[in-house]
Amino acid sequence: MTDETPYARLTPDLVLDAVNACGLWPDGRLLALNSYENRVWQVGVEDDAPVIAKFYRPGRWSDAAILEEHAFAQELADAEIPVVAPSVYTGRTLLHYDGYRYALSPRSGGRAPSLESADQLEWLGRLIARMHSVGARASFVYRGRIDRETLIETPMHAVLHSHLLPASQIDRYRGAVERVDHAVAARFDAIGPVRTLRLHGDCHPGNVLWTDAGPHFVDLDDARMGPAVQDLWMLAHDQRAMDALLEGYGSMRDFDHAELALIPALRAMRQVHYAGWIAARWQDPAFPAAFPFAAEPRWWEQHITDLHEQAEELE
């Protein structure tokens, strides 16, 4: 197993054996769930409900950072906020088996929220506000922050050291990212200090599941410190949707409306990070299969154009 192919040994048998090591009796049913950064399986269990087994990508987070995520999830659950927290086995949530780190959690189904529904958006706004009230109680120590180093500088270097970016586009790409970086820095400087708190961090529609009982959040794998608006903007495709989210949010917790001016900066940072993430993970066999467009020069040409458009919006 290498850093480039970290899951080469993660066979179905190993997944079943890891679940069995927790005292459960897998019945042989395995369903691979949609996940690229980690590997996630639904595992059938004899005479019981299936469990979700999440195997963490080696080298991405330290044990301390993963345990901090687990503690945050449990803190939210204890506050009756609907999140899926990892289960405890022999007093631990972070488990180890044959060189892999993993966690088990209850299976929790649902459907995507309707982002056209003002009622559902207000409901989500209230839940995010409650989550932020818990998140504001303390700070992460090990999980980092939403900042330019993490979301711009590091991914840029991953792209520049990758063979995916055509040589003819290197200077144009570097120039586009540097322009975005300067524009993002200027926007944050213009807004001034903003309150940061523990966030979900990746609160897009795929990480919210809706049932007849309402919504619940999954996947805190990108939980970090950052401004509250980070957990709102990916759920709002237009101003009407943002207004509905803020209507719900404001009924539970104060929101600093100055943070809305950070949305173009956060969007640009996410775009830079996305390309860098693909480049950094390209040796993982799952990535060329899932993102074949990243091997095409025209995609990088469009990406560079998009970055200039993001910078122009910020400027």
Rank of each mutant, 00 (worst) to 15 (best):
E75G: 13
E247L: 13
V51K: 05
L115P: 06
I170A: 04
L220V: 06
P86F: 00
D284I: 12
F55A: 09
D13P: 05
H273G: 04
A265N: 06
A118P: 10
F188W: 14
E301N: 14
R9T: 10
F291T: 02
A21F: 03
A286K: 02
L262M: 11
E259M: 15
R101N: 14
F188H: 14
F287N: 09
I152R: 04
A185Q: 14
D202L: 04
L33F: 05
A186N: 12
P288H: 11
F188N: 05
Q283I: 03
P50F: 07
Q310I: 08
Q310T: 07
E312F: 01
V134D: 00
H163P: 06
H132G: 09
P193L: 15
Q42P: 00
D171I: 07
A118F: 04
V229S: 10
L209Y: 08
I278P: 03
L165C: 02
F140W: 06
H182G: 15
A118I: 03
L31M: 00
A290P: 10
Q271D: 11
P82N: 00
P86E: 03
F293D: 15
L16I: 05
E247A: 14
D306S: 07
L151A: 03
N34P: 04
V134Y: 00
Q169N: 01
A244Q: 13
F188V: 13
I81H: 07
C203G: 00
A268W: 10
W233M: 13
A73L: 08
R148L: 15
S139K: 11
H157S: 14
R107K: 08
E37N: 12
L245I: 02
L124Y: 11
P193R: 15
F291P: 00
E312H: 09
P82I: 01
V194W: 11
R253H: 10
D284A: 13
W61I: 04
N34V: 02
Y100G: 07
R145F: 12
H132T: 10
H237I: 06
R270G: 13
V134K: 00
I66Y: 04
R267H: 10
V229Y: 12
G23D: 09
L209V: 09
R9P: 03
E309G: 14
P205Y: 07
A138D: 14
V177N: 02
F291H: 04
T5R: 15
G276C: 08
D238A: 13
P155S: 01
D98V: 00
P215H: 10
L266Q: 13
E312D: 13
W282D: 01
P285S: 02
H157G: 03
D202R: 08
A236W: 02
D243N: 12
R267W: 10
R137D: 14
W299Q: 03
R143W: 07
Y36E: 12
L16W: 01
D3V: 04
M1I: 11
G110F: 04
A294Q: 01
L260W: 09
E313A: 12
V177F: 01
S87I: 08
I128E: 06
